[in-house]
Every structure is written in C-alpha cells, then in structure tokens.
C-alpha cells in the first residue's frame, strides 16, 4: 500500500450533529481515518449510517442549521478545516478537495451549459481568463471521454445521458487537479455497464493526477474493486477499519460479517441468504452500549451496558467490538446459544 506516500488528510474524532425538534441526531459521532496521496479509502455502510454526512462534513457542506460540526478536526496538509474561516474554506473547495455526488441528473445546474459549469471553477481558483478557462474545460471533457467535447461543452445537462453527466461531474471536480477527491456514491444511479466505465475512469485519472480518493458507497462490490482500505460505518461510528483484502478475507465485526453474508453471490448458488435481524437504532436515541448490540448474535452483558472503542488488532485491523477484548467472556459460545 501507500504507506510511504504523503499523508494528506487526517480526520480525528469528527462529530456532526443535527438539532431538530425531535432532539439531537448524532449523524456522525466521533470518527477517525487518514488518507494518503494516491490512496483510495472506502467508507461503506447502509443508509443512515452517516457516511454521506462524513463526506459533506469534510468540506463543511452540511446544511446548517440544523447541522453542525460538534467536535473533532479535519487536518488537510496539517491545517484544520473545521476551524478555518469561510473564505479560506472556499479556496479549498473545488480546488484542493473536490467532490462528486450520487445523482448526476440533479447535481448539475439545468440552465447553464456544462462547459461553463466547469470553466467557472477554473476562473475562480486558477485565475484563468474566460477563453483559457473554456478551452481547459473542453480539454477536461475530452479527458473524461466525452465524444465531440467542443459541441457538448455548449449543451445543457438535459441534452446529456446519465453516464455523460457523471463524466461532466468528474471533469468539473478534477479541473483544478485536486489532491483529494470525495466520491459520494458516484455510480449508484447508473446502469452497471456505465458504472464500470465510470469506476474505470476514476481509477485511471487517480493514477494520472495522484490524488487521494474517498469512495463513499453502500456497494461492497465497488469497495472490493476500487479501494485500498475500508472503513465500515454503522449508526454514526466506524465499526471496522481494515485493508480491503483483510476486510473481505476475514471480516471481524459482527456487522461486517452480517453485511457480507446478506449479499447474494454472483458466482455461487445459495438457498437462503443469511440476514441481520432487527433494524438500526434511532439516531435520536442511541443505546448506551454497543450500537449494534440489539442485532448482534454474539451479544453479552457488557455489550448492552458499555460502548466498545475502536481497538487496534495485531494485524493492523481496527474493530469496535467487545469480542476482541479481554472483557469478553465467551460464555454464550460455551453454552451453545449460537
């Protein structure tokens, strides 16, 4: 992996809370991870786990109010993005850290030609002139594989297919050669053959530009094919952090195991899928103990009363589970409950 590469992003104890009439929702509740140059980190989890809020928090794009970064820091090349002024932050957005979103249909402005939508970032951050910015944006469209880019640049988004719009989004995000690209479910709304094209494109451009990529996704297949390391999120926490090989070969957290088990497999036949019973706890009312305890087949008393920490294992995997600590009794196993 890229251990020798430069550390560019370090998230420490990041908390994002939403205050509404129903109370405080802890969408992101103290997460840590790092990203190096040229590396791809996957953040995976099911809807409501806080993965998208994490990505929006890094660029401070959470809707506020009601959202608020309630604690922690996001160090980008040593500077804390959380405490920066809005002006300083704007110089980072779209320039040094870029983002692409899930819905290419709605993420582009419907009344502005796509070339202009790319060019405006160049004029803003690179201080390019009108003509130079336009030429560069045509060049970017060509780079992301859009046929007849001169013509397409003048078109409005509704004249482009879904796959092409996502290519435009990528061109826009990469126009200023950022050091970090945050891709929030970039292929979820696309057909599989188009998804394959887009993932390939991101990979190719990453090698070219050398940026770090944070891939936010619910699709473990996408993680396996694109990421170097993975953070699995559940109810606002990271429950497991491992290299992609380790995570798929030897998932440690019961939630990760459950997630992998419940996937229908494309290369083998199964009679019945193994499911995770129950549902995610309400973000307004998190349990005192482990957040997965109510659905966990291995649950012991301590899981209900105390929340486990994300603990380093000997193989470098981090896991938030009492099972991998000295407090674990293993009594249930012995009794043969499982």
């Amino acid at each position: 992996m890229n251990k020798k590469n430069k550390l560019i992003l370090e998230v420490k104890g990041l908390k994002t809370h939403f205050t509404t009439k129903r109370g405080v929702s802890k969408a992101v509740d103290g997460i840590d991870f790092t990203l190096h140059k040229g590396e791809t980190l996957g953040i995976v989890g099911e809807s409501g786990c806080g993965k998208s809020m994490t990505s929006l928090s890094i660029l401070r794009l959470i809707p506020s109010p009601p959202g608020k970064i309630a604690g922690g820091s996001v160090l980008f090349k040593g500077k804390d993005l959380v405490t920066m002024t809005e002006d300083e932050m704007r110089k980072i957005r779209g320039n040094e850290i870029s983002m692409i979103f899930q819905e290419p249909m709605t993420s582009l402005n419907p009344v502005i030609p796509v070339g202009e939508q790319i060019a405006e970032a160049l004029r803003l951050h690179q201080k390019m002139g009108k003509k130079a910015a336009w030429e560069k944006s045509v060049e970017m469209l060509k780079l992301v594989g859009i046929p007849s880019p001169e013509k397409r640049a003048k078109q409005e988004p509704f004249q482009l297919s879904g796959g092409m719009r996502q290519r435009v989004m990528i061109a826009m995000a990469l126009a200023c050669t950022p050091e970090v690209l945050i891709a929030d479910e970039p292929t979820t709304a696309l057909d599989v053959t188009i998804q394959a094209q887009i993932l390939e494109l991101i990979k190719e451009l990453q090698t070219k530009i050398g940026m770090g990529v944070i891939m936010i996704t619910h699709d473990l297949g996408v993680v396996a094919e694109t990421c170097d390391k993975v953070a699995v999120m559940y109810a606002g926490n990271i429950v497991e952090h491992a290299s992609t090989e380790q995570l798929f070969a030897n998932p440690k957290h019961p939630y990760t195991q459950g997630l992998l088990n419940s996937l229908p497999k494309i290369h083998e036949d199964q009679d019945e899928l193994i499911t995770i019973d129950g549902s995610v706890p309400s973000p307004y009312n998190m349990p005192a103990g482990c957040r997965f305890a109510s659905r966990c087949p291995y649950r012991e008393d301590i899981c209900i009363t105390h929340q486990p920490n994300l603990i380093n294992q000997s193989d470098g995997v981090k896991v938030r589970c009492w099972k991998y600590t000295d407090e674990w009794t293993g009594n249930r196993d012995k009794e043969g409950v499982i």
Binding site: E103, S107, L108
Partner: peptide, 15 residues
C-alpha cells in the same frame, strides 16, 4: 437553494 446542483456549486468553492 435546497437542490443538489446548488450543493455542487458550493462544493466548487463559489461565493
């Protein structure tokens, strides 16, 4: 202002 493309514009660093 709540639409996705406004979020995109913010992510671009526009004022």
């Amino acid at each position: 202002i709540r639409q996705d493309y406004i979020r995109t514009a913010r992510a671009k660093g526009l004022r």
